[in-house]
Amino acid sequence: MKKDYSQVYNEMQDENFILSYKGQVGFVQINSLLRIIEDRLETAEQNPKTRKKVYNIATECYQNLSHHLEKHSEEIGMKGLAVFEAYQDKYIIATGNYVFKQSEQKIKEKIDYINSLSKEELREYHKQILGSEGFSEKGTAGLGFVDIARKSEGNLRYEFSHLDDNLAFFTLKVEIPRIENKQEHSS
């Protein structure tokens, strides 16, 4: 597959493209990414509720990325991808990582199920997971996608790009609408 790197470069020159990271995703990297996002939000976002919501969703997305890199990803040179974009009406947080094909169907089913739930059903599903499933071997209760969906109040978008018979690149994209600051319109 031929890649047009000049197109990638031009896309990254877009003023809406705030952050792009490809590499190891661990505690240190997540904290660095979140500090950058926090700094950018502090200067670019007037509404404190939106700032908090975007920061919390970014935290969930990047932690989810860290928890779900495949077990052998370091051995085969796999790294994660984190992107943050800001537009006049929304923010976009995207993550990407390699997954083995046997994980793909489980991920699709979970996200599709989460996307099918109403706000109330999502809240109940969250309670159900906390009450019955306990913690996974990764130290999570399987709440990552659920928490992201609850906080973003929208569908999680995803894509799998197949690289070979065993491996796919999984991309998760979350859009967070900007909330108008009511104080601006009251005067």
Rank of each mutant, 00 (worst) to 15 (best):
S136W: 06
I148Y: 02
Y98A: 06
R123N: 00
I129A: 02
V146K: 00
N97L: 08
S136Y: 04
Q105F: 14
K119W: 02
S132D: 03
Q105D: 15
Y125Q: 13
A149Q: 04
E133M: 06
D112I: 13
H126G: 00
S118V: 05
E104A: 13
H126E: 03
K151S: 13
K110A: 02
K119E: 11
S152C: 08
G139A: 08
G144K: 07
G96Y: 11
D147L: 07
Q128G: 04
E137N: 11
Q105W: 12
E124T: 12
S132M: 09
K138Y: 02
V99C: 03
L130H: 07
E121M: 10
S103R: 14
F145K: 00
L122N: 07
N97K: 08
K127R: 13
G144W: 05
S132P: 10
L143A: 03
A149G: 15
S152L: 00
V99Q: 12
E137I: 15
S132R: 02
K127G: 05
E133I: 11
I111W: 00
V146G: 05
S136E: 04
F135Q: 15
G142T: 15
G142H: 04
A141L: 04
A141E: 03
S152M: 10
G139P: 01
N115G: 04
Y125N: 02
G134W: 05
I148S: 14
K106Q: 15
E137Y: 14
D112V: 09
K110P: 08
E137G: 12
E133H: 03
I107S: 08
S132E: 10
A141M: 09
Q102H: 12
G144A: 00
R123H: 06
S152N: 03
Y113W: 12
E124L: 15
K138I: 11
T140R: 11
K119I: 03
F135E: 07
L117Q: 05
N97S: 01
I114V: 06
L122E: 05
R150K: 14
E121H: 06
R123D: 07
G142E: 01
I107Y: 08
A141C: 13
Q102Y: 12
V99P: 13
G139M: 10
I111R: 08
S103L: 04
I107H: 06
G96V: 02
G134L: 07
E104T: 15
E120M: 05
K110V: 00
E120Q: 14
Y125C: 10
L117K: 11
A149T: 03
G131D: 10
Q102D: 13
G131Q: 09
A141G: 09
I148K: 15
K108E: 15
D147V: 00
K101Y: 15
K127Y: 09
K101S: 12
Q102K: 03
E137L: 14
F135D: 01
S116H: 04
F135V: 11
G96T: 00
H126V: 00
G139R: 06
L117T: 08
S152P: 02
I111S: 10
Y98Q: 00
Y98C: 02
A149P: 00
L143K: 10
R123E: 09
E133F: 01
Q128S: 04
E137F: 13
